[in-house]
Design a protein around this nucleic acid. Structure first.
Lengths: 353, 353
DNA sequence: AGATCGTAGTTGATCGATCAAATCACCGAA
DNA sequence: TTCGGTGATTTGATCGATCAACTACGATCT
C-alpha cells in the first residue's frame, strides 16, 4: 500500500497502471468506474496493479472530463456562542464524515452577507470548485434559495424554510431537513411528568423566533395533555435571551414561584438554570436542549438532535439532485430528537404536587 | 458582473473570452497570471472582456496543468468540549478567511488515528486534491510530521512540537507557530497584582501537559517577580481536570484558603471559578484563558490567543513552502496573547493583603 | 546596411482521465 | 462457410488552462 521513496517514481497514471497490468487505459478506468463491464479475472488483475502501484485517480483530470468536482461547499460562520455553536460543529463533522464515505469532499467558504454569499456561489460553481451547497440556518427573505434554484445549482438546507413573503405557504421548492423541536421539549416534559413533577417550567427565548416558539409549543402541549391547565401553565413560562446568566436568573425566579423542574430551550439556559438550582440548594430537575458537550460534562439531561441523520440526509439529497435522481422520499417531514437522561433529571425527585 | 440566464450560454473559457476581446488564449491567461507581460491597453481590454462574459477560471483545468490544486487540507475533529472547542473553530474560520484572501481553499477531512490520517495524507495528495496540510494539536511520537516531511508534502502546525523521543531537542525541522501561554498567564497575574491582589491562585490542569505546565509557569514567574515567595505560592496552586465543575470546586477550596483572585488555565475552569465566587458571595477576581464566547457572554476577563495571526502565519508558511520560498522569518518564536479585561476582574477590588 | 535584441503577442503540445466509437474474439444460426 | 450478434477491450478525441517555443515588428548597436 505504501509508495516508494520520496521523489523516485513518477506519480502513477491510468496509462502506467494499464501498462503494469497489461491492459489499456480505458480498462483501468472501467475497473474503477464500471467494474461490471470487466471480466472478473481482468478486474482482479487491474485492481492488483492499482494496489501495487499505489495509484489514485487525479481529481483534476477527472473533474475536467466529467464536469464534476466531487465537492460540496459549506459556509463556515464566525464563532458566536460557545455552547450552542457546538451543534453546527457536530453537523459539519457529520457532513464531512458522510461525504468521505461517499467519495465526496467538503470545502469551506465564508460570507458575511447574503450578497457576499451569492458571489461565492457564483465563483465556486463557475470555477467548478463545488458541485453543490449545504446550507444551514435560514432567515426571512433569504435570497439564497431563489438564486441557487434559478441557476440550477443543487443545494439542500438544514433548517426549516421560512415562508417567503407573498408566497402562499405552500411546499417550498427546495430540499430541506430539520429536527422537530416541539417533539423534543414535549418528550422532556413527559419525562419530567413521569418523574412526578407537575410544576414544570419552561425557560425559553422571547416569542417570535420560529425555533424558540416551536420548542415552547412542545412543552406547552405536553403539559396541557397531562392536564395542566392554561392558567397553571402561564406563570411557568418564561422568556429571555439565550445565555447562562439569563437562564440562572429565570430559574431562580421560577423556583421562587414553585417550579420543581425546568425544560430549557437551550443548553446555555439549562447550564444557568442548573447552577441556580444548585445555588438555591434545591433538587429541581433540569433538561437542556442540544446535548452539547458542556451538558454531558455537567451531567445535564438534554435533548439531542440527530445531527448525523440530518447531515446524511442533506448530503444524500444534493447527491440525488446531482445525479438527476428523483427527490428523496421522507416518511416524516421532521427528524425526531432524543432525550438523553443524566443526573440533572435523575434519580426521581420526590413528587411535589 | 452577473451572468445571463440559467442554461442559455456555454460556460465561458479562455478561448471564448479571447475571441470576445480579439486576442489569443494565452493573452487572456497572461492577463490573469502575468499581467505585467501585457501592454496596459491590452490588459484593460482583456479584463473588460472577462468582466463582461463573467469568466472564471476552471479550477480543474488549472490544477491539471499546474499540478496544484490551490487547496489546503484541515482535519476536522469531532466536537469534544463545548467551551474550549471554540478555539479551533475560530482558528479554522480565520484559516478559511485567510485562504480566500489568497485565492486558496480549505477542504476538510476526518481521521480517528494517526494511521488513518496518514492514509488521508496519501490519498489527498495522490489525487492532488490538496497541496498542503495545516495541522493543529500535537502529541508525543507524532507520526505525521515525519511522514509528511519524508514525502515532501508541505505542512505547518499550530501548536508546539513535542521533542521527539531520542532526538536532541534541537530545532524541529518543520514549520510551526504557537502562542506563548506563559506570557498570557503572566499578564493576567500582573493585571491582578496591579489591582492590588496578592493571594492570586492558579486554577490549572494536572502537571504533565506541556500547555498546562506552561500556563502555570507564567503565573508562577509573575508572582515570584512580584515578590510572592515560593512557600506562599505553593498553596495557591491547584491541579484538576478541565471542566466547569472542577473549576468551581477548586475555586471554592482556594477561596477558603484566602485566595482573592484566580488565574485559570481555561475558560471552562474560569466559568466554574466564577460561579463559585458568586455562590460564595465573594468579590474575588477571575481571569480565564482563550476568550471563548462564553467568557464574553458572562463578562469574564480572559486571555485571547491571536488566532487570526496564527492562522495567517500557518497559511503563509505552507504557501512559502509550495512556492519554494525561503522559510518565513519570525521575530519571536511565539505569538503573544492579549488579556481582555471584563467585569470579572473589574472594578479594582479592595486590596486584601 | 545588416545583425542583434527586446517586447508583445501568437501557436503547438500537454497535463490525466473519461466519453464515444471502433475493434476484436467468440458463438450460434442461416 | 459465412454472417450477425454480443460482450470485452482498445483507440481516438476531448475537457480548459498553461508552459514552452516561436513569430512579428521596431529599436538599437556596430
Amino acid at each position: 500500500m505504501e509508495q516508494s521513496g520520496p521523489e523516485t517514481a513518477q506519480r502513477p497514471t491510468v496509462s502506467s497502471v494499464a501498462a503494469h497490468a497489461g491492459v489499456s487505459r480505458q480498462t483501468v478506468s472501467n475497473a474503477l468506474n464500471n467494474p461490471e463491464r470487466l471480466q472478473p479475472e481482468t478486474l482482479k488483475r487491474v485492481l492488483t496493479a492499482i494496489e501495487e502501484t499505489g495509484y489514485v485517480r487525479s481529481a483534476a483530470a477527472r473533474q475536467m472530463r466529467t464536469a464534476r468536482s466531487g465537492v460540496i461547499a459549506y459556509r463556515l460562520d464566525p464563532v458566536r456562542d460557545g455552547i450552542g455553536g457546538a451543534v453546527l460543529d457536530t453537523f459539519l463533522h457529520a457532513l464531512t464524515a458522510e461525504a468521505e464515505r461517499r467519495d465526496y469532499r467538503v470545502v469551506l467558504y465564508t460570507a458575511d452577507s447574503d450578497e457576499a454569499e451569492l458571489r461565492q456561489f457564483s465563483s465556486l460553481t463557475q470555477a467548478r470548485a463545488a458541485d453543490a451547497f449545504v446550507l444551514v440556518g435560514t432567515h426571512r427573505n433569504d435570497l439564497r434559495y431563489r438564486w441557487l434554484s434559478e441557476h440550477g445549482i443543487p443545494f439542500s438546507v438544514f433548517g426549516r424554510p421560512w415562508p417567503e413573503e407573498g408566497t402562499t405557504a405552500a411546499e417550498p421548492a427546495h430540499a430541506w431537513i430539520d429536527v422537530d423541536g416541539a417533539a423534543g421539549t414535549a418528550q422532556a416534559a413527559r419525562h419530567l411528568l413521569d418523574l412526578g413533577h407537575r410544576n414544570i417550567a419552561f425557560v425559553g427565548w422571547p416569542a417570535g423566533s420560529e425555533t424558540g416558539d416551536e420548542r415552547r409549543r412542545g412543552w406547552d402541549e405536553a403539559m396541557a395533555a397531562a392536564g395542566v391547565g392554561a392558567a397553571e401553565r402561564r406563570p411557568l413560562d418564561s422568556e429571555q435571551q439565550d445565555g447562562i446568566l439569563e437562564g440562572a436568573d429565570a430559574a431562580a425566579r421560577l423556583l421562587a414561584g414553585g417550579a420543581t423542574a425546568f425544560v430549557c430551550a437551550s443548553d446555555s439556559l439549562a447550564v444557568g438554570a442548573f447552577s441556580a438550582v444548585r445555588a438555591a440548594g434545591a433538587r429541581a430537575a433540569v433538561v437542556g436542549f442540544d446535548d452539547s458537550p458542556t451538558a454531558a460534562a455537567l451531567g445535564l439531561s438534554s435533548i439531542r438532535q440527530p445531527l448525523d441523520d440530518a447531515a446524511a440526509w442533506a448530503l444524500a439529497s444534493v447527491l440525488d439532485q446531482l445525479d438527476g435522481r428523483a427527490p428523496r422520499e421522507r416518511d416524516a417531514r421532521l427528524l425526531l430528537p432524543r432525550l438523553v437522561v443524566r443526573e440533572s433529571s435523575q434519580p426521581p425527585a420526590s413528587a411535589t404536587r
